[in-house]
């Protein structure tokens, strides 16, 4: 049962990802990306990572994709002949082949000798809100706090780059 579910979700995410990079319209790509995110959320849920699954749906498939769609709408993108237009298929195929070449040994190794993976540190609380929260505030307290600096720096940087120079001259 779970294997069946896994294959459905895996094939779903891969085909959505393909749809995303192959479709010509930006909106189609964005919607396909929502599909990828939802399938990934399902995969996370199957791995007992319920919090991550919920966050994936809420944050990525929900909030971020709405933003992306808004931006696409505001930019009013049209297809234009860019520098790479003619060569695009070659670049796409080349990148896919290269990446798969890199990952092939990884996959083949798994097919040849499937490993059981590593044991969870605490199976009872793994992936729950409590488990993730405890980890964030104990083991990974410092990286968690650095994230606050990261967000502040990103905010300041975004304001600096986008604010209108004329208005800001005091």
């Amino acid at each position: 049962m779970s294997a069946l579910l896994f294959y459905i979700l895996a094939i779903g995410s891969v085909s959505c990802a393909l749809l995303m990079i192959l479709s010509k319209k930006a909106v189609n790509s964005a919607v396909a990306l929502v599909g990828v995110m939802l399938c990934l959320a399902g995969l996370f849920a199957m791995q007992n990572a319920h919090l991550i699954a919920a966050l994936q749906v809420l944050v990525y498939a929900g909030a971020i994709m709405v933003l992306v769609l808004f931006v696409i709408m505001l930019l009013n993108l049209r297809e234009k002949g860019g520098l790479l237009t003619g060569r695009q298929p070659f670049i796409q195929v080349g990148a896919v082949v290269l990446l798969n070449g890199l990952l092939a040994p990884l996959v083949s190794d798994y097919v040849m000798a499937p490993t059981t993976g590593i044991a969870l540190t605490d199976p009872a609380t793994f992936g729950t809100v409590k488990g993730v929260g405890t980890m964030l505030f104990t083991e990974y307290l410092l990286p968690f706090e650095i994230a606050s600096i990261l967000l502040l720096a990103a905010l300041v940087g975004a304001v600096v780059l986008t604010k209108n120079k004329k208005n800001s001259e005091g």
Binding site: I146, I149, L150, A153, A154, V156, G157, A158, V160, L161
Partner: peptide, 9 residues
């Protein structure tokens, strides 16, 4: 990431 994001700006 903190370093890179600030540097981009």
């Amino acid at each position: 990431e903190v370093m890179s994001l600030s540097l981009y700006a």
